[in-house]
Structures are given as structure tokens and as C-alpha cells.
Design a protein around this nucleic acid. Structure first.
Lengths: 352, 352
DNA sequence: CTGAAAGCGCTTACAG
DNA sequence: CTGAAAGCGCTTACAG
């Protein structure tokens, strides 16, 4: 016998156990179905009833059991982030953005990195999505570009949002980052600084952004009447080491380029290294512009001019699209959110 | 009527639906309880029966429903990673390590970053763990050092493993990283290079590693007969900016230090910046040693000498500890895994 | 607007 | 070593 032995508290629940929907129903003197309606925000509940039930829910500290709901709903309350992007900065910012959107929704984020080149990826992803009965999935590049994975998700009837540099799907399932715009801005910037003999280090063919950034860069130069000479284009792989190799190639050309645009910042730092090893000083002897605006860009010397994508915002926008149906919106009728990259001008590119 | 209309296949399951434990039981001609025993690797099943049931499981492609198991077990198959560490590199490596251990276990990783300074953290973590009925939780620093969170986990009966620079808990719940050893090595290294007037930039007081690294550094110097002068110690906050401020202080002392050890790499890069701005060249005019060995350490110029912690391994080891009971091991009787940092010698610290 | 019954797919507790 | 019954805590489908 405790002080708390009021009729209500007594009827509430056995000690040491979390209250269930039955406890709420009993105390509120309604059926559990009505409690269920209140939990699920059904409009078919009288206002007075809703208020009373909510009061009891608060009083008992009732929290619906996710497993039980999931079992009945035949799906979980988990959002999957499936990625093969190896940049820690990209991954963490994307996760933060997704979590920004998920906050308060009752959904949680399950992370699933994988190797797109492994021959078990597709089967692995199928198992993951099927077992977890995911609420939805977010696919940043280059995972977003793999149609085998998309087929699996469609087959499993799992909602998804793809993030990519160009549109690859219906508006309900896409977030477009328009990488060509950022690259074009980089091109115009270098041209406006007076550079004409310009090099480009591309990303790997597996990443769609490689071609899109390259194309955008060409466009930007073309707007200023400059044509990118194919001899000044080297293939990289988005890694520091590949940037080093490509820079060695480009900087041993005669005449050598006065400026280099790289498909990402990692490779730009490779250019930094080679230039230093060759006794060149940036930006005096060589201008460099990168892409991604990693935290590193503003730590190295000279600070790297780079194109920034609002990665955290992208994660949030993609997740919000996934949440739309929950909020009574039709994802197919939503507008396709787009994102614009922007050039962050620092000290690594100067006028000739 | 299909070609597949054999008795077995017919009895198997309705089309378009995933087979359940009942389907397996029917086809294998056992009770669902026996199927359950096989799934859960109970030893109380005749070998012959087990083989037959497993064959049917494979034949039907049966995958146990996680929500249903979770509802009956009263817990989920999710491991939570709760952290407030802001370094993307640390976070991603830790996640990778945890996933290395989780692979094949049927468990998935739910990430939960948070702000330890927010006044809702503790309540927020309670909600998270309680709602998800987590299988277990992994706490890297400095989350691992928050006793309020530990109290919540104990109260909720949620297994956890803490990762910290010193032991804070029983062997079943700890992974010790011994940061003092790495810092001591840094101290001996600088002393062996002939430095005697040495500066130290510490991390924030909220992080236990700050004091542990500082203490280890003092010990290392002491082993070489050098005492760290308190006037050459500045308080940082593990951020680039705080490194800049602290470096300004230390480098304006007269006489100024010939070497600086920083509590992490971010702050070391702050020292790089200030040294450059003051016209000093590293390592000619100043030796610098960092801690963490970020990817950046081998990108900047000069390459940064730094102490490395095997973060991915740490994640894996912590997760394996969490999985021990699943494998029939008693976590309390397990040995407490320890990790040893190592000094990676590069170009930022040289002999006087 | 509300409710009683049946069911989601597993496991626990109890028998044998 | 195996099984029939009851239960985990919700929702769906059907009535009213």
C-alpha cells in the first residue's frame, strides 16, 4: 500500500512493467482500438475522447511498443542509409542531416555502408532491407546510381530517395544536386582569373558525378570562350594517391597548365603535394580548385578554393521526402528538391 | 496449376507472402516450437530433426521475422552507438569497426549522435534506448564518461560497453585505450630529439582524454629528466580555432618553446597556421606532434607526426564484447580488452 | 465516432 | 527430445 493508491494509479499497471495500450484503455475507459486511433492520429475520434486518452497516456507515461506496432504494421520504424561513399566527412554530414529530419518522428537511422564492387552487394542489401522491413531507404551517390539496387527496393516495395548529381528517377524519389553548376562556376572562376591552359583531373567512371562535374567544368570554360584540351585531362579516382599520379602527368606536360580543377578535394591535395615536390608554389605558379569543401580545405596552406555542396541539408531534404507520406503528402506529387553547389573562394587560385 | 505443384511446394506457402515459422513447421512436419528451437540453436533438438528443419528453412527461404521475435523476446536486434565526438573520421571508423563485428550476427547498427552539453541529453537517451529496446549500446568518449547516462542504461537493464582512455567500469563493460601511453611516447620522442623547452596544448576539461594525454606526456618527459613547465601549457578545446589561440599564446612566450605537443591533430593544424603566420617554418623553427593521426596528418605539409589509436579495431572489439552473451560467454568474466596507441613519426618534429 | 474479435509471427512456461 | 496453449502489444477488418 503506497500513498499512490488512488483508484486511478491502482488500476494503472503492475509495478515494474511498462504500461501497455490495455492499461491506457482501462484507465481511460475506452477500448484499446480507440487508444490505437489516438496514437495513430486518426481523425475519427471525438475531441473529448482524444483529450482524455492523451491525458491518461501522459499520466501513465505510456510509450507504444515499436516491435508490436511493427509486427502489426508489417514494417519497422527504421530508415536505412545505404552508401559506398568513403569520405568520412560526407558520411557524417549526411547522417546528421537525415537525423535532423527524423528527430521527433519516432524513426531511427540504421547505417549500412557497403562496397559497390563486391559481388554480394545486391544480395546483401536485399537481405538487409527485407529482414529489417525498413520504413525507407536513402541512397547517396554512388549507391544511388546502381539500378540493380533500385530493382531490389522496388521488388521489396521499400520506399527510397536517391541523391545524385542528375535526375535518375521520379520526383518523389529524387534529390538532385546539380554538380554541373558548381563545376561550371569553377570553370568561369579560373577563366576570369586569366587562365587559358587549364588542366582537369576527373573522378572514377563508376561515379556519375565524375562525368557531370567534368561536363559542367567544360561548360563553364566554354562560356568564357575556352575549350578544355583533352591532353590536359587526366583520370583520377577521387583518392589522394590518384590525385598525385594525375598531377604528375599534368605537371610534366610542356607547356604545363597554369591551373588545375580537380573532381574533389582529396585529389586537389594530391596536386598540392606534387607541386611542392616539383618546387612550385601555389597559387603563384599554379592555381588549384577542388570540389567538396572538406574541413581540410580551410586547414591546409594555402587554403583551398573549392565547390561546396550542402551535404547536411541534402540529408535532411532526402529524409523529409521519405517522411512525406507519414504527413499525408503524396511523394509523387511533391516537387523534386534541388540543391545548388557554390564556389568558396580562398587562396589557392589567383590571377595569372 | 504450375510445374511446381509438388506436395511439398504446394503445402509450402501462399504466393507473394514470405514464409513463416508455421509454413516451415507444416512442411517439416514438426511443431513450430521445434522450428523455433532450431532457429535459436537450442541443443534440445535431435540431430536428424535439426537437419530436416534446416533443409526446409533453406528450401522455403524462410527468414524469421525480427519484429515478431523482438516482441516475444521483449527486445530488439539493434545495437546503438551513442556519441558526442565531433570528428567525422573518428565516428566513421568507429561505425565501421562496430559493423565489422556485427556482420553475420543479424544485428544492425543504429547511430545516435548527441550533444552532451544539452540539458535534454539524458532524457533523450533514455527515450531512445527504452523505445528501441536496444540489444546493447556502445559508448565512445566522451559519452562513455557520463555517469548519468550509465545510470539510465543500468536502470533500463541495457547492456553497454564503454570506450575510454582509462578504466571506468567492470571488465565486462570496458574497453581501455591507454591514451597515456601514446602521449608518453610523444614526450620521449620530443625529448630524444633534444627538445627541452616544450609546450603542451590540452583538450577540454569535459574530455577525460585531455587529462590522461597531458599526464602521459608529462610522464614521458619525466622519464627523460624533463619537467613540463606550467607556463608552457595552454588550454585548448580539441578544435582548430582553439589550437590557433593556444598557439598564439605559447609562441609569443619569451623564450618560446622549440616544440609543441597538442592533445589532438585539429589543434596541431592550428599551430601550423600560427607558425606560418609568424614566419616560422616547421620543423626547422618548431617541432609539432599531434594526437589521433587523422587522414589530414598525412596530407598537410609537412606531414604531421602524430599518435594513432586503432579506432576501427576499437569499435570491433567493443561490439564483440556486446555479442559475447549471444555466444554463450559471460561478459563479466571476459578479460578487459586494451588497446595501445602508437606514435607515427613523420616530418613535423625534428632534432634541434 | 466506437468496439469485440481475430491476427501479425514469434517465444515462454508448462507438460509429457 | 517434442508439442499444445497462452501470450508478447499492437493493428486490421468488420460491425454497429
Amino acid at each position: 500500500m503506497t500513498d499512490d493508491d488512488t483508484p486511478t494509479a491502482r488500476a494503472a499497471t503492475k509495478p515494474g512493467k511498462r504500461p501497455t495500450i490495455n492499461d491506457v484503455a482501462r484507465v481511460a475507459e475506452v477500448s484499446k482500438k480507440t487508444v490505437s486511433r489516438v496514437i495513430n492520429q486518426s481523425p475519427f475520434v471525438r475531441e473529448e475522447t482524444r483529450v482524455r486518452v492523451n491525458a491518461v497516456i501522459a499520466e501513465l507515461g505510456f510509450v507504444p511498443d515499436l516491435q508490436a506496432r511493427g509486427l502489426a504494421f508489417r514494417r519497422s520504424f527504421l530508415v536505412g542509409l545505404i552508401y559506398d561513399n568513403p569520405s568520412p566527412n560526407y558520411v557524417v554530414n549526411m547522417q546528421q542531416g537525415v537525423l535532423d529530419a527524423l528527430r521527433g518522428s519516432g524513426l531511427e537511422l540504421v547505417v549500412h555502408p557497403c562496397l559497390r564492387t563486391a559481388d554480394t552487394v545486391v544480395a546483401d542489401i536485399r537481405t538487409f532491407v527485407e529482414r529489417q522491413k525498413l520504413f525507407g531507404v536513402i541512397l547517396p551517390p554512388s549507391m544511388s546510381e546502381d539500378e540493380r539496387v533500385i530493382d531490389v527496393l522496388r521488388d521489396l516495395d521499400c520506399p527510397y530517395v536517391r541523391i545524385a548529381s542528375v535526375s535518375l528517377d521520379g520526383p518523389g524519389a529524387m534529390l538532385v544536386t546539380n554538380d554541373h553548376l558548381g563545376a561550371a562556376e569553377a570553370g568561369r572562376h579560373l577563366a576570369d582569373l586569366g587562365h587559358t591552359r587549364i588542366g582537369f583531373i576527373s573522378g572514377p567512371a563508376l561515379f556519375r558525378s565524375s562525368a557531370v562535374r567534368g561536363g559542367g567544368f567544360r561548360e563553364g570554360l566554354a562560356e568564357r570562350g575556352i575549350t578544355l584540351d583533352d591532353r590536359y585531362v587526366a583520370a583520377g579516382a577521387y583518392t589522394f594517391e590518384s590525385g598525385v599520379e594525375a598531377a604528375k602527368t599534368l605537371l610534366s606536360l610542356d607547356p604545363r597548365p597554369t591551373a588545375i580543377f580537380t573532381g574533389n578535394d582529396e585529389m586537389a591535395l594530391g596536386v598540392f603535394k606534387v607541386a611542392r615536390d616539383m618546387g612550385m608554389e601555389i597559387p603563384r605558379d599554379l592555381s588549384v580548385v577542388g570540389y567538396d569543401d572538406l574541413p581540410m580545405a580551410s586547414r591546409v596552406w594555402p587554403n583551398l578554393t573549392s565547390v561546396r555542396l550542402p551535404i547536411r541539408d541534402m540529408g535532411r531534404m532526402a529524409a523529409e521526402k521519405l517522411l512525406a507520406p507519414m504527413r499525408g503528402l503524396d511523394p509523387a506529387k511533391l516537387d523534386q528538391p534541388e540543391v545548388r553547389p557554390s564556389l568558396v573562394i580562398r587562396d589557392s587560385a589567383k590571377a595569372l
